[in-house]
Design a protein around this nucleic acid. Structure first.
Lengths: 219, 219
DNA sequence: CTAATTCTGTACCGACCGGTGCAAAAATAG
DNA sequence: CTATTTTTGCACCGGTCGGTACAGAATTAG
C-alpha cells in the first residue's frame, strides 16, 4: 500500500508555490523551464515526472492559486447581501493584488492575457476560469434579485460583468505599481455604482428599514 | 537633398501597421522576429535597418498605435465637461477594444502586462505610457474642480485612477471575447460612479440650472 | 562612366527553447 | 540477499530565438 520506488525528494505543494510565484511575475510565456526548475529547486525530469509538462504545471499552479490565494472569493459570496458580497470581494481583491511579499497583480491576468499561437490555449484557459468566477457572482446576484435583495430591474449578468471588469482593472493597475491605498479609493468609487439593498423597496418585505448604506452621495 | 542610396521598397507606416496588429494579438514576448517580418512583408535586415531592433520596433508600433488608434482620447479630453470627457472616453474605449477587423483588446495592455527579465523594460514602458494617459485625465479633472465643473471635495487623481481602472478592465474583458454591447452596459454602470456637473452647486455660479444629468438613479 | 551610399536577400551566429534518454540512486517486496 | 519500481541528475535532442555578416542590387553625386 505504501509507495513502491524511490520517494520524491521535494514537496509537491511547496514546489507549486514557487511555480506560482514565477508564473505570477513573468507570465506563462515569459517563464522558461529553467526559470521554473531553478525556482522550484528541482531538476527538469523531476518536474516532468511530477506535473507532466510546462502547460500542466501552469494549470496546476493556477488551480492552487485559486484555492489558496483567491479563497476570499468564497468568503465574499457567502456575505448576507449582494452589496456586501461586492464590497468584500473588491476590498479583498485590492488587498490581494498588493500583498507584500507576493508579486503585484493577479496570476489569472498576468499569467497570460495574450500570446503567440503556441501558448494560445493557456490564454483561453485563464479567460475561461475568469468567466467561471464571474458566473458565480452572476448567480449570487440572480438569487438576490429573486429574493428582493436587489431591484428586479437589475440584470445579474451585467452586474457581475461590471464587478469583474473593475476587478480586472485593479489587477492591471497593481501590476503597474499602484498602491493598495490608491486601489481602495478606486474601490470606494466603484462601489458607488452598485445598488444596495437600502436604496430600493424589496418585493418580499415592507420598505420600512433604516438605511444602512455606507455609500457616499454627491452633495 | 534627396536620399542617396537604394530607396526603401516598403512604406514605414504600412509596415508598422502590420507590426501593431501582430503585437496587439500576441504581445511583445509572444511575437518573434519571424512573426514580425512575415506579417510586415520585409526581411529581417530591412526591419533592423528601418527600426533598430525588436524592442524599438515595438515602441514605434505603440507610438503609432497611440496616435492613430487612440486618437479618441484627445477628443474626449476636449469635451466641455469632466463628465462628458469620461463618458466619451469610456464609450470610445469600449468601441476601440471591440473594433471589427482589429484584435480584441488594447495594445497598451496586451502588449505586455508581465514578462521575464529580458522583456521587463517593455512592460515598464507600457505602464509608463498608461500612467501618462491617466495623468492627462487627472489634469482635466483638476481643471474642472478649479473652475467648478466638479465638486471641490473630489480628488482629481483618484477620479482619473478610477477611470483608467475601468478602462483597463474593459480591455481585459474584450481580450477575453466580451462583446461591445456588454462592455457598453459595463460603461453605463461605471458612469454612475462619476460625479456630473448637474449634481452639485458650482462654486462659480448660482445653483439654479436645470439638471441635464443623463444618469440613471436607483428607484 | 565611376564612386559612394543605402537597401535587400541569403545564410549564418551562439544561446536558449521545451522536452527526453539513460543510467545511477533509493526505496519496497519477496 | 535479489528483483522491481520510481526518482534523480547529466547530458543531449531538434528547433527556434534575437541579431548580424556579407555580397549583390539599386539608387544618387560627380
Amino acid at each position: 500500500m505504501t509507495q513502491r520506488g524511490r520517494p520524491r525528494e521535494f514537496d509537491l505543494d511547496d514546489a507549486l508555490d514557487k511555480a506560482i510565484d514565477v508564473f505570477w511575475k513573468q507570465g506563462y510565456g515569459g517563464t522558461s523551464l529553467s526559470d521554473l526548475t531553478e525556482a522550484m529547486g528541482i531538476s527538469r525530469p523531476s518536474l516532468y515526472s511530477a506535473f507532466g509538462n510546462k502547460e500542466q504545471t501552469f494549470k496546476a499552479a493556477v488551480e492552487r492559486y485559486a484555492r489558496v490565494d483567491m479563497a476570499y472569493v468564497d468568503d465574499a459570496l457567502s456575505a448576507p447581501t449582494a452589496y456586501e458580497t461586492v464590497s468584500r470581494y473588491l476590498r479583498s481583491n485590492a488587498d490581494a493584488v498588493t500583498t507584500p511579499g507576493k508579486p503585484a497583480g493577479c496570476l489569472s491576468i498576468q499569467g497570460g492575457l495574450s500570446a503567440g499561437p503556441d501558448d494560445d490555449r493557456v490564454v483561453r484557459y485563464l479567460a475561461d476560469r475568469r468567466a467561471d468566477g464571474e458566473r458565480r457572482f452572476a448567480d449570487r446576484f440572480a438569487r438576490a434579485i429573486a429574493d428582493g435583495g436587489l431591484p428586479a430591474s437589475e440584470d445579474a449578468a451585467d452586474l457581475a460583468k461590471y464587478v469583474s471588469t473593475v476587478s480586472a482593472g485593479l489587477a492591471v493597475q497593481a501590476a503597474a505599481g499602484v498602491s493598495r491605498e490608491e486601489l481602495h479609493r478606486v474601490v470606494d468609487r466603484a462601489l458607488l455604482a452598485f445598488p444596495d439593498k437600502a436604496s430600493h423597496t424589496p418585493a418580499s418585505a415592507g420598505g420600512g428599514e433604516v438605511s444602512s448604506s455606507p455609500r457616499a452621495r454627491w452633495g
